[in-house]
Design a binder for these strands. Structure first.
Lengths: 222, 222
DNA sequence: ACTATTTTGGACAGCATTGTCCAAATCGTC
DNA sequence: GACGATTTGGACAATGCTGTCCAAAATAGT
């Protein structure tokens, strides 16, 4: 493990702590601070000093835990990705499989999906980070997309298929419908959270209602 | 005009050339190169030397035309914004007002809108630029959004209203429908053009068809 | 052909950043 | 309390970037 490239980091499902000591808290603080500073200033604009200060830690400690600025960036992306995917799949499990009131339950699900996962400011930060350096590290961008939005679409597509087989929806292309569902629900929230703030619950509720209603107008059996 | 802030530049509708000489070509080359380099490396990552080299120009010439790196950035954003808005409104004028075949003409319009304007790689570059530095210069971000997507949504909303009054659509909230139209059409193209490449005509055609068909399934009078 | 403007290349100071080294201080654990 | 691991702060060289200055070369206009 003399060398650890970006793709190595991304491929490792869960890198077990190389230092079993209790100084994992410092490591977490560093990764957290680095996430914030990278998101605020970009990769080039972020300085190790700023990250160390934000983490309340000496600069040397950063270099102690992390070899490079590049390696730190990769670790930050990896960390944020697994954390967010965990929340994403947890929310995904609350999809209404046996809905009593399809519209209401879909709206509630969309609210959870957009508010907690897709349109949180943490999610926007990660997405912007990975998009910006996507041209520099294409593997990073592809790995993130496959693990996150890719599986999201696949999961929602499968759920929509089951609703269609139950006669509750009229979808011929579940993959397309899945992407449209996500697009309709998140549409109005992206401009808000791209500015670094979380959308308000009222905004999330409005976006979910409007998106789901239009989705159902298009895909409810007539 | 001793000082020229970011907002000054953004508010000026069209800054007339301060140097009427024929060296405007150099200026254009500099702005073009700066746009490419800023889009590639971000504001912090872009160096004046790289921009000068990309423009085939001495570094001193850049400083001759442009006071600051910040001023250069503002000029680049201004330049790209007016250029793209010109194309946007030209395409917007081709909206089918008296459609013979609504679906076909809406699909063709959506193809022009997405392919030529919203999802071109130039558009994605500008959007990423303005989003990234949006936290640093909020006025810049707001000004861009009002001039570009804001007027786009307003214009499409008005057109949809007229189609609704003609009995061709069933929309109760034209603003919402307008944003949904754009979202449905551009949805599948954003991942492609965020990587710096233009989507292929086939991709644009597929996205426009799928988006418009779902839009009409939701909003065609029954 | 002459003149004014513009461009060029290079040198330069000031500053920020990266990554390393090291001795002292601190912390956790036995 | 003692010992090993960890953290700290500071110094340090190397590098790159910004923005300025200047004299020479090229370019445009008349």
């Amino acid at each position: 493990m003399a060398e650890q490239t970006l793709t190595d980091v991304m491929d490792a499902p869960l890198a077990e702590a190389p230092s079993p000591r209790g100084h994992a808290a410092k490591r977490a603080a560093i990764l957290d601070a680095a996430m914030r500073v990278f998101a605020r200033d970009g990769f080039a604009g972020a300085s190790i000093d700023a990250i160390a200060a934000e983490a309340g830690v000496s600069r040397q400690t950063v270099y102690n835990h992390v070899r490079d600025k590049e390696n730190l960036f990769a670790l930050v992306v990896e960390d944020a990705t697994v954390r967010q995917n965990a929340g994403l799949f947890a929310t995904l499990a609350t999809f209404p499989d046996r809905p009593h009131d399809l519209e209401a339950e879909l709206i509630a699900f969309a609210q959870r999906l957009a508010g907690d996962c897709l349109c949180s400011c943490r999610s926007a930060e990660l997405q912007r980070l990975v998009e910006n350096e996507g041209t520099r590290y294409p593997e990073l961008f592809k790995a993130w997309k496959e693990r996150g939005p890719g599986r999201l679409d696949a999961a929602i597509s499968a759920r929509l298929s089951r609703l269609a087989q139950a006669g509750l929806l009229d979808v011929d292309d579940p993959d397309l419908a899945s992407r449209q569902f996500v697009a309709l629900v998140t549409m109005d929230l992206e401009s808000t959270n791209h500015l670094g703030e979380d959308p308000s619950p009222a905004e999330v509720e409005a976006a979910a209602s409007a998106g789901v209603r239009t989705f159902l107008r298009a895909y409810r059996p007539r």
